[in-house]
């Protein structure tokens, strides 16, 4: 084989737009504003979603769109529309597989083995900004599946809150289309859902552990009552708050967790530059945040 045939092949033209430098600038801008990071292997998502907005406002290139988002008077509104586009339709059962495995295989076993918890066997989870309920019901399914062994004799409660009354009503109704259940194994569909025509209704067993409430995360007095959680999920909610509101809300989450508790954002969201009380925790395929126990030994992987 001649050596000159060994150079890297020219890039696939279909992927050419993914190497547009403006897309990298767009990615970094979104990260600065929202904390949502698109790795290069997810650029196709970023490109598709940006293009939807570009079409709506008649922007031809990513460079033009970047300029629009940084210099135009309505840039904040457009960024909000883009973030909506980025996070839309993102919710379905068992969506963040790596986070769910981290909870079931690492966090739960650690919690139930903790000597300090043996006298009072209660676990509390909070799904903050629960949207239409897929996230808290996923947690509920997880708890039911482990109820017979790891969580035997444990009392588990999930509080799920959202600002939107319609979302809360939808949560309580517990009726979902195929899209929401697409990631479920046939066993889980069979065990935890009842098919009603084209829709799937969550079983009473799954519903029983979840308490839905309307809550505005900006309501300083209401949020003060949200205390004593072992685990808080807040996916793709903080992105809509400004810096001060973000910091204040995360501070409430921190105070709402018991020491040793965990906090999860959306899969690609981070708290960098927003809040530094939490410790960044690495799990296989997922990152989360950890509230250290006062006086906890440092220096060992948990």
């Amino acid at each position: 084989m001649a050596l000159d045939t060994l150079v890297a092949p020219a890039q696939d033209p279909a992927n050419a737009e993914l190497s547009d430098p403006a897309l990298i600038k767009l990615r970094d801008l979104i990260y600065c504003i929202s904390g949502i990071y698109h790795p290069e292997n997810k650029f196709y998502l970023l490109a598709t979603r940006s293009r939807r907005r570009m079409k709506a406002i008649n922007c031809k290139t990513f460079a033009d769109y970047y300029e629009h988002l940084t210099t135009r008077p309505n840039r904040n509104a457009e960024m909000r529309s883009l973030l909506n586009e980025i996070t839309i339709g993102e919710t379905y059962f068992f969506r963040s597989q790596a986070q769910i495995e981290a909870v079931s295989k690492i966090i739960l076993p650690k919690l139930v083995a903790s000597p300090s918890r043996q006298a009072y066997k209660k676990l509390r989870f909070w799904s903050a900004g629960c949207s239409t309920g897929e996230e808290p019901y996923t947690l509920s399914i997880l708890l039911i599946e482990q109820a017979a062994n790891k969580l035997k004799d444990w009392n588990c409660e999930i509080v799920a809150t959202d600002l939107n009354d319609n979302s809360i009503a939808k949560c309580k109704e517990g009726l979902y289309a195929e899209y929401s259940v697409r990631n479920l194994t046939p066993e889980r569909r069979q065990r935890f859902f009842k098919q009603e025509g084209n829709l799937y209704r969550v079983s009473d067993e799954v519903r029983a552990r979840v308490k839905f409430e309307r809550l505005n995360l900006q309501d300083q007095s209401a949020i003060l009552f949200m205390k004593g959680f072992d685990l808080i999920f807040c996916c793709n909610v903080l992105i809509y708050f400004d810096g001060v509101a973000k910091r204040r809300t995360v501070d409430h989450f921190y105070n709402g967790l018991v020491p040793g508790g965990h906090f999860f954002l959306g899969e690609c969201e981070t708290l960098f530059g927003i809040y530094d009380q939490f410790r960044l925790a690495h799990f296989p395929g997922a990152t989360g945040y950890y509230k250290a126990i006062p006086g906890e030994e440092t220096g060992a992987s948990r």
């Binding site: 076993p109 690495h282 296989p284 440092t298």
Partner: peptide, 21 residues
């Protein structure tokens, strides 16, 4: 090992950087 470049199996562990010596 935690980010898809390990030995192809799940290691049930958590580490937080801040407490790594």
């Amino acid at each position: 090992r935690l980010r898809g470049l390990g030995y192809g199996y799940y290691e049930a562990r958590e580490f937080d950087l801040a407490s790594e010596p």
